Measured scan of single mutants.
Amino acid sequence: NKFNKEQQWATYEILNLPNLNEEQRKAFIDSLKDDPSQSANLLAEAKKLNDAQA
């Protein structure tokens, strides 16, 4: 299913963002699990935070 693929991709991407700390990473991944339909939005937020902390 589409959300499952998006969720897996977003999880992979978030795990590989270098500037997030473990707590932030875990929070994003927990949110992905809670609502896979928000995968794209959550990934965008994670990338923004990652860039802000660069």
Rank of each mutant, 00 (worst) to 15 (best):
E13Q: 14
E23S: 11
N50S: 10
F3G: 15
S39K: 03
D34P: 02
T11R: 08
P36Q: 02
I14R: 00
E6Q: 05
L42N: 02
P18T: 07
L20Q: 00
Q24R: 02
K5M: 04
A40G: 11
A10Y: 11
Q7P: 03
T11L: 15
A27D: 09
K5V: 05
R25D: 00
Q24D: 04
W9V: 10
N1S: 02
E6T: 04
E6W: 11
T11D: 02
D35H: 12
N50W: 01
K33W: 12
F3N: 15
A27E: 07
Q38E: 07
P36M: 04
D35N: 12
D51T: 10
I29D: 01
F28Q: 00
I14D: 01
N1Q: 05
L15T: 09
L32D: 00
N21Q: 11
N41K: 14
A10G: 02
D30Q: 13
Q8H: 04
K47L: 09
D35Y: 10
I14H: 01
Y12H: 06
Q24S: 03
Q38V: 05
Q38G: 06
N4Y: 13
A44S: 11
N1D: 15
E45R: 14
S37I: 06
R25H: 03
N21M: 06
N50T: 01
N19K: 04
L42P: 01
A40K: 15
K2S: 14
N16V: 05
S37W: 06
F28P: 00
A44M: 13
K33Y: 14
L17P: 00
Y12W: 13
D35I: 05
N4V: 07
P18G: 06
F3I: 15
L17K: 00
K5P: 15
A46R: 00
Q7R: 03
A10K: 02
S31Q: 13
N1I: 04
Q38W: 04
P18I: 05
A54N: 10
D34I: 08
S37P: 05
K26E: 06
D35Q: 09
L43H: 03
A46L: 01
K2T: 08
E45P: 00
E23I: 14
Q8D: 04
F3Q: 15
N50K: 01
A52I: 11
Q53Y: 08
E23D: 12
K33R: 12
I29V: 06
F28Y: 08
N4H: 13
A27T: 09
K33L: 09
N21T: 13
D51M: 11
T11W: 15
N41R: 15
S37V: 05
N1G: 07
Q8P: 02
A54W: 11
L17G: 00
Q24G: 01
N1V: 03
L15M: 13
N16A: 10
A52S: 08
N16H: 10
I29S: 03
E13I: 15
A27N: 10
A46D: 00
S31P: 02
N16T: 07
A27M: 13
D35R: 07
A10F: 10
S37L: 06
N19F: 11
L32P: 00
R25K: 13
S31H: 10
P18Q: 09
K47T: 06
L20D: 00
D35S: 10
W9H: 14
N19V: 02
A54P: 07
A40R: 14
A46E: 00
N19A: 09
N16P: 01
L15N: 12
A46V: 02
K47W: 14
K26L: 11
P18V: 07
S31E: 07
K33F: 15
E13H: 14
N21L: 11
A54H: 10
E13G: 07
E22N: 11
N16D: 04
N21A: 09
A52V: 12
S37D: 06
L49V: 09
T11M: 15
Q24K: 02
A27I: 12
L43A: 09
A27G: 09
K5Y: 05
R25N: 01
K33V: 15
I29F: 05
N19P: 00
I29M: 10
L42G: 01
I14N: 01
A40I: 11
A52H: 10
P18D: 04
L20N: 00
N1L: 04
L32I: 13
N21K: 08
Y12S: 08
E45Q: 13
Q53F: 10
L17D: 00
D51H: 10
E6M: 08
E22Y: 13
S31D: 07
E6A: 06
S39W: 15
L20R: 00
E45A: 14
N41I: 12
Q53H: 05
T11Q: 14
F3K: 14
A54V: 08
N41H: 10
N19E: 04
L32V: 10
L15S: 11
D34Q: 14
S31I: 06
D34T: 11
A46G: 01
N16K: 12
N4I: 08
A10W: 05
N16Y: 04
S31W: 11
L15H: 06
D34R: 12
K47R: 06
L43N: 01
F28L: 04
E23M: 14
K33G: 09
K2Y: 08
E23V: 13
I14F: 03
L17F: 05
N41Y: 15
A46W: 01
Q8A: 08
D51E: 12
A46K: 00
A40P: 05
P18S: 06
A44T: 08
L42Y: 11
S37F: 07
P36H: 03
D51N: 10
N4A: 08
Q7L: 15
K2W: 13
A46T: 00
A52P: 02
A54R: 04
L49Y: 05
I29K: 03
K5R: 03
E6V: 06
K47H: 06
A10L: 04
K26V: 06
I14Q: 01
Y12G: 06
E6Y: 13
Q53I: 11
L49E: 03
A10N: 03
D51W: 14
D51G: 08
E22T: 10
N19W: 13
E23F: 14
Q53A: 06
Q24P: 00
Q8S: 04
F28M: 04
A10D: 02
S39Y: 15
L20P: 00
W9D: 06
Q24E: 03
P36R: 02
A52D: 06
A52L: 12
D35G: 03
S37Q: 09
Q24I: 03
A54L: 09
N4S: 07
W9Q: 12
S39D: 02
D51R: 10
D30K: 13
L49P: 00
A10V: 11
D30P: 00
E45T: 11
Q53P: 04
Q7I: 07
K47N: 07
K26D: 05
E6N: 04
S31R: 14
I14S: 01
F3M: 14
E13K: 12
N1H: 10
I14V: 05
D51Y: 11
R25A: 06
A10M: 04
S31G: 12
L49R: 04
L43P: 00
N16S: 09
K26W: 12
L32K: 00
A40Q: 09
L42I: 13
N4R: 03
A27S: 09
S39H: 15
Y12V: 04
F28N: 00
P18R: 10
Q7F: 14
N50L: 01
A40H: 09
K26M: 13
K5I: 04
L15R: 07
I29R: 03
